[in-house]
Design a protein around this nucleic acid. Structure first.
Lengths: 172, 172
DNA sequence: GGTGTGATTGCATCAGGTGCAATAAGAACG
DNA sequence: CGTTCTTATTGCACCTGATGCAATCACACC
């Protein structure tokens, strides 16, 4: 990430990354499926925490509340490093292929969350809609928080959820 | 698309495509930014129709209804060719890089729709949430329709919108 | 000290993608 | 009809990402 930030994502080659890590290009591809993946190792861990939290969520909670709670819980370790999140976000925004990969990761996580919501009793359709809503709420909250970290990520999530409810409340 | 369907996306090279079209690899890249884009020429045209329709939508409609109406209107020309949509969908699903590109296109269109909803008077936040909802509803409807085309795409959209409302109604 | 296992590497190879300069193909014009 | 201007096509050199395979290195374990 340091290399990417300094020179830009496109300007850094896989050989550069490998050299920085004291390895060869070939070894890089033993650890990461492609150049993009190196930016998403943390995201994979985050997904695991989300799914874990959702599995432990209060069964009484409505699907949307449960999903948002899981995101909130999983995001707790990130809350102390807004600068890191901002740098990562800027990097992703700077490269189309990173944006694509990011969307893919989010979509994949959304699908898995939906599956767990289904296991909690929601219909597949409801689970899919609610999970998509939770993803939207979470990414919106992160964007807000990254720009104004002072109130904390948790508050940003609660705020985004509330705004989502009032935005969709009129229409639904 | 015929080549992709016959041999699979990965197995077909850009040189193959160019040869089939009576051109060279270099000329292919004069027409398409990359190999993936060749699958999304129609999608770009669809986006244009969505934005155009939304511009003409009844100003009295609530944001979500306006957006969904625009998708419905823009999708009319597709309604007669469910087989084509199914083949295209299967192809995209078969390739991770096509999925990524598809998500990117949808995200980009979602952002543009949100902008137009903003121009209709919605707040940026409401516009973003509603536009994301409309995208979810539309893609869900297309999936449904592709599997059971007999009731028509328009009915599938209306149905998905209704299901969205009832799924989010309890939570919102 | 020997052995087995996994990580690392070198190498060859391929496909996607780009910049640049040359050239072919026409359309427009006198 | 011939010229000119524009645009599409091409060839070529070159780079990066990515993969398969075989060799080898490091090292924990017995």
């Amino acid at each position: 990430m340091a290399l990417f930030i300094e020179h830009g994502y496109d300007a850094v080659t896989v050989a550069d990354i490998a050299k920085q890590a004291g390895l060869t290009k070939r070894s890089f591809f033993n650890h990461f499926a492609d150049k993009r993946e190196v930016m998403f190792a943390a995201a994979d861990a985050f997904e695991a925490r989300v799914l874990d939290a959702l599995g432990r969520a209060d069964p009484e909670l409505e699907p949307l509340d449960a999903a948002v709670w899981a995101y909130s819980k999983a995001a707790e370790p990130l809350g102390d490093y807004p600068d890191l999140a901002r740098a990562r976000g800027a990097l992703i925004e700077s490269s189309a292929e990173l944006q694509e990969r990011n969307l893919m990761k989010m979509a994949s996580m959304t699908a898995k969350v939906a599956e767990l919501l289904g296991a909690r009793g929601a219909s597949p359709r409801e689970a899919a809609f609610v999970s998509q809503a939770a993803t939207t709420i979470f990414t919106t909250a992160v964007d807000d928080w990254v720009q104004q970290p002072e109130h904390g990520l948790d508050a940003a999530i609660r705020n985004a959820l509330s705004e989502f409810r009032s935005a969709l409340g009129a229409a639904v």
